[in-house]
Design a protein around this nucleic acid. Structure first.
Lengths: 262, 262
DNA sequence: CTCCTCAACTCGTACATACGTGTACTACAG
DNA sequence: CTGTAGTACACGTATGTACGAGTTGAGGAG
């Protein structure tokens, strides 16, 4: 399988470092499709033989590819070309009421629409003291408490996003928000039933390398950054009613926003 | 001079790899502020002595920090704690007409307002055949041509963003858009003078690791991802009038958007 | 046929050594 | 005082060796 792979020899004249040349060869093989997603990259021993260099040199080359997010190393198995999950496009109207009223959670509906198998796990609901940041965004006093709903989203079994919502306890108490299944239309529907008519959301987006926990939770390959998105939901009277803190695998998402020119 | 730095010894019991322990120590020193921005991390030789380990082990540790974006190595000088440029917050109303009418380019005004010294360089203007992607976004026929304006934005001399705008040649020809200084209010003002009233913008955002050229252009430290943002400007009749392809250093930006709930 | 053991192969970690190349400071010559 | 050569030091690249640990599959025991 895939043994049509033939890597060029080193260019003895080039002043490009040997390990970079090797990385270039493998990268080009991937880009040309000679190595497809999921294919095994030749083992370190094989590459040592082919190029006639030391193992450290090969490892440096593989390190480059890994930090570019092109490959993953699996201990005891080999190095493989990364496979990319289907990309989710988040449009700026994704929280429009017309979508919310269909009853299905946005994530489920969207993913099924795109032909993927959505799932949600690790749902945890607790009542806690809000962090300083959350308290400020929700405009809460020092004694207020919030209900936190954390969960993880997966597409075709591959985790793509973790999210934690914070809702003022005063709003969430006694509603289905406290249940793992928050009911038709999700927590936003429950919040509106409480008399808060949703008006607008504000999203703040950062991009950075993931923390250790995030690498684990999202099964991220080395070299893949994450979107860190904090969304605050406001009711028509200006009251913030929810803060949602989400971390998304950057190669599973394209974010899309519409801005007025007015 | 920062010589209060004392690193702990290795934990011989821990099953955490030695190089990771060392990386942890240095990371904590940075987080505690014992190593401030711009400070020199002890040299590889010093660390070898302190921990009594081989150089490869030290280099592995430093590699970890570098790929986390915490440090930069400078050949012949040493390893330094990365300094972060001031963060720019891009709000979703940044292209509102009221800002545009003040005459100053958005980037200059914003940066000065935040106390930074803005500059723009590498301005290049050419007329080219659009790429397939740009042609599609601009809704152009196979023979149409576009004017491309590329430039690089810097804050306090540090590059933070590169941008290439594509404007249909038909619109740009004969206007100040063809000049390095596009005049008061920037190219959007020129486009409106041509009779296209701007209505809305659509931005698509990806996050990924930078390409080699981008690392150079933005002087990115290893391990720092970039935002890749493509903005399309539409006139009130729905005609797309500009596509702007920008790459931003992710640690210099926070993006902020407002979404309607309606 | 099934289960288990074990060998072979894989990547991970660590050691020791050598030489190249860029930087910065010092000392000396002019 | 100035300029330059030298030198010490820093990281970059590369070789070679050794052992650890996870995975896989073949082959033998039951």
């Amino acid at each position: 399988m895939a043994e049509s792979l033939t890597l060029p020899d080193l260019d003895p004249i080039s002043d490009r470092a040997v390990f970079r040349q090797i990385a270039d060869h493998i990268r080009e093989a991937i880009e040309r499709g000679q190595l497809a997603e999921g294919d095994k990259v030749p083992s370190e021993a094989t590459l040592m033989q082919h190029y006639g260099v030391a193992r450290m040199t090969i490892r440096n080359a593989l390190q480059v590819l890994q930090s570019e997010g092109l490959t993953v190393a699996e201990h005891g198995r080999g190095v493989f070309v990364r496979s990319h999950p289907p990309v989710r496009r988040l449009a700026s109207d994704r929280f429009a009421r017309r979508h919310r009223e269909q009853g299905k959670a946005a994530f489920i509906a969207e993913t099924e629409g795109a032909g993927g198998k959505p799932s949600v796990d690790s749902i945890q609901i607790t009542e806690v003291k809000p962090s300083a940041q959350v308290a400020e965004l929700l405009n809460l006093g020092p004694k207020a408490r919030v209900v936190s709903r954390s969960r993880r989203y997966l597409i075709n079994g591959q985790p793509v996003e973790t999210a934690i919502s914070y809702i003022p306890a005063e709003i969430a108490k006694g509603t289905q928000i406290m249940q793992p299944d928050s009911g038709p239309g999700g927590i936003y529907a429950r919040i509106e039933e409480k008399g808060y008519r949703l008006d607008r959301f504000v999203e703040e987006i950062k991009s950075r390398m993931p923390l250790r926990d995030e690498v684990r939770a999202l099964k991220l390959a080395p070299g893949v950054p994450v979107f860190h998105l904090v969304r605050t939901a406001y009711a028509t009277d200006g009251t913030p009613v929810e803060v949602c803190d989400t971390v998304m695998s950057s190669d599973a998402y394209v974010l899309s926003y519409e801005l007025p020119a007015r």
